[in-house]
């Protein structure tokens, strides 16, 4: 079922990677864990992220005869690895290569949740935006144009209320369609100003030469330009066994 390399997932403590793996990301207090519990029920397992004192919750659910492994990532505002939690979430989405990533957003303050969404979309196009707490938003008379949002973002958008179970069927179906390849999101790439794009074009061929041509090279190049050292550690830990000396040369 899985065409992606399995090894990185082992590093995250996931052994049974025959089933598709779906990551659950989101800001703190968006009901991410409520969604996780509603989807997996009692079929979950809690432990730690390997080598970290951060809780890892993993669960399974079945949809249409297909078993899906759901990984609850720590709640973060960002993926720029300022904290252990952010680094875990980022490493899992980038190095773990989940078959889909659900970003849970709070319908009552959607705007502040979209920052994380954009950061996830920069890493992988396989993203579903789940807008949770729509019951509360309705009560506050907040109206959201889900169709227009999906069109502008270029990814599927699923409204939900995890507390009442509303929208969860559609969420599972959307995940299924993404795993099976029926749904191929095409989010618009984020283009930076000329100086950044120029630097990107300089180092991209070098990165592709080391890690292979990959849709996510652009994200990696951006982090290297930012001078993010944690991403180099990640490459060493999850992708390559020998130190990426040439990447460090690229590193500015």
């Amino acid at each position: 079922m899985k065409g992606q390399p399995l090894q990185p997932l082992l590093r995250f403590g996931i052994e049974d990677a025959d089933s598709p793996v779906v990551a659950l990301a989101g800001n703190p207090n968006t009901g991410k864990t409520t969604i996780f519990n509603a989807l997996t029920g009692l079929n979950q397992h809690t432990g730690n992220w390997p080598g970290k004192t951060v809780v890892q919750a993993r669960g399974k659910y079945c949809y249409g005869g297909q078993e899906v492994i759901l990984v609850d990532l720590p709640g973060t505002y960002s993926l720029l690895a300022n904290s252990v939690e952010e680094q875990i979430a980022r490493d899992f989405i980038y190095f773990g290569r989940p078959d889909a990533t659900i970003v849970v957003a709070d319908a009552t303050c959607l705007e502040r949740n979209l920052n994380l969404l954009l950061q996830v979309v920069e890493i992988t196009p396989l993203v579903i935006l789940c807008i949770n707490l729509i019951d509360e938003a309705r009560r506050k008379l907040i109206k959201i144009d889900f169709a227009r949002l999906a069109e502008r973002l270029g990814i599927p958008v699923v409204p939900a209320s995890a507390r009442t179970g509303e929208g969860l069927e559609l969420l599972k179906k959307t995940v299924q369609d993404m795993i099976s390849g029926k749904l191929k999101p095409s989010p618009k790439p984020i283009i930076y100003d000329g100086e950044v794009e120029g630097a990107l074009h300089q180092i991209l061929p070098e990165i592709k030469g080391i890690l292979g041509d990959d849709a996510t090279s652009r994200w990696l190049a951006l982090r290297l330009l930012e001078g993010d050292e944690t991403v180099l550690e990640g490459i060493q830990h999850y992708l390559l066994t020998d130190p990426p000396a040439r990447l460090e040369e690229v590193f500015v």
């Binding site: 960002s78 720029l80 705007e111 502040r112 920052n115």
Partner: peptide, 11 residues
């Protein structure tokens, strides 16, 4: 640097 990024991430 990081503090600036953090503040921007917080909105």
């Amino acid at each position: 640097g990081l503090v600036r990024r953090r503040l921007l991430d917080l909105g």
